[in-house]
Amino acid sequence: MNKTPHPTNTSPKPHHGTLTSYVTGFVLSLVFTLIPYYLVVNKSLRGDALLATIIGFAIVQLVIQVVFFLHLGREKKPRWNLLFLISTVSLIVLVVGASIWIMRHLHYNMMPGDVTNKVANDEAVHQVSGLQAGTCPGGTGTIYKVELKNDVASPRHTNAHLCDILIIMNLDDTTRDIEFGVHAKHETYAGEFGGALRPHYSRMITLTELGTHKFHDHLEDKMTGDFTVTP
């Protein structure tokens, strides 16, 4: 059927452009392309700020092109096209964002052993499966034992040097929650949190932070102790 083209004002067409809209869209897109380009080339911004900026510019250019080239948002209701686009963009954020989140967590938790040690070293995490993580290049020193028995830590005070090892042993029949700091204010030591210590279990801590640090049994508060680390 060869029909001559007829003005399509009567049809429910969602896109209806004008010269102005195309030119505006073109110029704006040029601007929003060149700015991030020069920001990157001239290194005017760095790191996260740069990343956020160029992604922000990309999103704005997306909106520019959607409005000025695709004429979205001007259709009569129900605005299915717009709704579908918004849903799709949300889904893309979910797909890409969740993938990055999940894969990053998997990567961190499941890396091969040799890489794990390197990361532990970089992040100053000193306990990795009970093995030292390379922060004490000269190796570890003396081993000090603290026994927890009958709600008493003995010895109550330990004096040690950097890169010595402290082993806290729970010789009672109850589980203890050995936390650093005091009952009212828990702390971390060398990036490590406190935690449960079951009966007859022990915990090994490489002493890589200087100073005096307290620990206590959070369940049985009268059981406290401390250790001092000097260089």
Binding site: L91, L94, W101, I102, H105, L106, Y108, N109, M110
Partner: peptide, 18 residues
């Protein structure tokens, strides 16, 4: 239904948060 898929691989090691 679009936000649950990881329950097919809980054991793969993504950690507690995820």
């Amino acid at each position: 239904a679009l936000s649950v898929w990881l329950h097919h691989f809980f054991t793969m090691g993504a950690g507690a948060d995820v």
